[in-house]
């Protein structure tokens, strides 16, 4: 609801504007310093598009993994009671506070060729994750999934559980009730969580470079490419950053428009 011409108090307005400036000034700087004239040449290389493609594919795959595993996990946290639930919830959010590099190291210890699970994956299925594209997806999902779980759990808690009771009295099993009633009801929360997870995965750096390395075309995503370019060719780094920025804005704006249209 819109109130008629009420001015915001200066004590709120001033810090708000400062905050906005703080968040957007670096982006403006990026635009100002961009080597616009050399840009076409900078972006002509295959490596740029290869990194961008890899970034989008991996971030989307990581979001898919997060959805498949994270939504049921959120349901478990929101709709059931079991001993040690608080601990589980804390563990789920751990990757949020863990430095991503540490996450990468931990992943390497578990899923690496000599890791507890990695060794078994290797011997049983001939599967190796570290330093592969699949490894990038694993690293990104590790960091991004908590965002989805938290968002979906919040949505589930806000959704009236009595709809599930109503479904049960109509003959729906818990799974059917979840699929046909609960999930549609919390769809906006799931979508918001997926966007958060996707955005986090797209920008992932630390866990990726530690667990999956930095191989162009295989594991070198945009953030890795930007970081590497920064060391020997800052202009290229700026060009890459611009591309990443544009893609992010385009995707977020596109999705936002779609969801606000359908309540």
């Amino acid at each position: 609801m819109r109130r008629a011409s009420r001015t915001a108090p200066a004590a709120l307005l001033l810090p708000a504007l400062l905050g906005l400036l703080f968040l957007d000034l670096p982006l403006v700087g990026l635009l100002v310093r961009a080597p616009w004239r050399e840009l076409p040449a900078q972006l002509a290389g295959d490596q740029v598009w290869e990194a961008l493609r890899l970034s989008l594919v991996c971030a989307t795959s990581a979001t898919a993994v997060s959805l498949v595993l994270g939504v049921p996990l959120a349901w478990l946290l929101a709709r059931t009671r079991f001993p040690g639930q608080r601990l589980v919830r804390a563990l789920v959010t751990l990757p949020l506070v863990l430095p991503p590099v540490v996450g990468g190291v931990a992943l390497l210890l578990v899923l690496g060729r000599n890791g507890i699970v990695g060794r078994w994956l290797d011997s049983a299925f001939g599967l190796t994750l570290p330093f592969t594209t699949a490894g990038v997806v694993v690293a990104e999902a590790f960091v991004a999934m908590p965002f989805l779980v938290i968002s979906v759990e919040g949505a589930l808690r806000a959704a009236d559980p009595r709809y599930e009771e109503a479904a049960a009295t109509l003959g729906a099993s818990r799974l059917t009730a979840f699929r046909r009633v609960t999930l549609p009801l919390v769809a906006p929360g799931v979508a918001a969580g997926a966007v958060l997870a996707w955005a986090r995965a797209l920008g992932e750096f630390g866990a990726t470079i530690t667990f999956a390395g930095n191989f162009p075309g295989r594991t070198q995503t945009m953030p890795l490419a930007v970081y590497l370019a920064m060391e020997n060719d800052p202009a290229a780094a700026i060009a890459l950053s611009l591309v990443l920025l544009l893609v992010s804005i385009a995707v977020l704006a596109g999705l936002r428009g779609r969801w606000t249209g359908t309540p």
């Binding site: 009595r162 009771e165 009295t169």
Partner: peptide, 29 residues
């Protein structure tokens, strides 16, 4: 369990599924 009882319930605030049409609400069971 409730889903296996031959029982129908009309709830106080009805609890019609908001994302389904009236027809699909009735068809749900």
């Amino acid at each position: 369990p409730p889903e296996r009882r031959p029982v129908g319930v009309v709830f106080q605030d009805y609890l019609l599924f908001p994302h389904l049409s009236a027809l699909d609400n009735v068809a749900f069971g």
